[in-house]
Computed example of a mutant assay.
Amino acid sequence: MENKLWYYRNKNNITLQELSRLSGISVAELNRIENGYTNDIMLSNAITLSKILHVDLYELFCIK
């Protein structure tokens, strides 16, 4: 799954550690998502990330 998590996280000046604290998702899991090492992201986590980063879910995860 292609995603723009790194782009929007950096655009919002949020570190992985801060995003982990805000979302409740581990730094390791966020790193795997950012780098495309997993396609298995829970919908609830995807929604949480889109809300924290103030970006549409479809835009964040490049869903057409």
Rank of each mutant, 00 (worst) to 15 (best):
E2G: 06
E2N: 13
E2Y: 12
N3L: 10
N3V: 11
N3E: 10
K4D: 06
L5F: 09
L5E: 04
L5G: 06
W6A: 14
W6V: 09
W6I: 13
W6M: 11
Y7A: 09
Y7L: 14
Y7V: 13
Y7R: 13
Y8Q: 05
Y8E: 07
Y8F: 15
Y8C: 04
R9V: 10
N10T: 15
N10E: 15
N10A: 08
K11S: 07
K11D: 13
K11L: 13
N12D: 02
N13V: 05
N13C: 10
I14F: 11
T15L: 07
L16W: 04
L16H: 06
L16D: 02
E18F: 00
L19N: 04
L19M: 13
L19Q: 04
S20L: 03
R21Q: 12
R21Y: 06
S23C: 03
S23V: 09
S23H: 08
S23P: 04
S23N: 12
G24M: 04
I25Y: 02
S26T: 14
S26F: 03
S26I: 03
S26Y: 09
V27P: 08
V27C: 07
V27M: 06
A28G: 11
A28R: 03
E29C: 02
E29I: 03
L30G: 11
L30H: 06
L30I: 09
N31V: 09
N31A: 15
R32Q: 13
R32H: 05
I33P: 00
I33Q: 00
I33Y: 01
E34H: 09
E34D: 07
E34N: 11
E34G: 06
N35Y: 00
N35R: 09
N35L: 01
N35W: 00
G36A: 02
G36E: 01
G36C: 02
G36R: 03
Y37M: 01
T38M: 05
T38D: 06
T38Y: 04
T38H: 04
T38R: 02
N39D: 11
N39E: 13
N39A: 07
N39G: 08
D40Y: 10
D40V: 09
D40T: 10
I41E: 11
I41A: 12
I41W: 09
M42F: 12
M42Y: 14
L43A: 12
L43Q: 02
L43K: 01
S44R: 09
S44T: 12
S44E: 12
S44M: 06
S44Y: 12
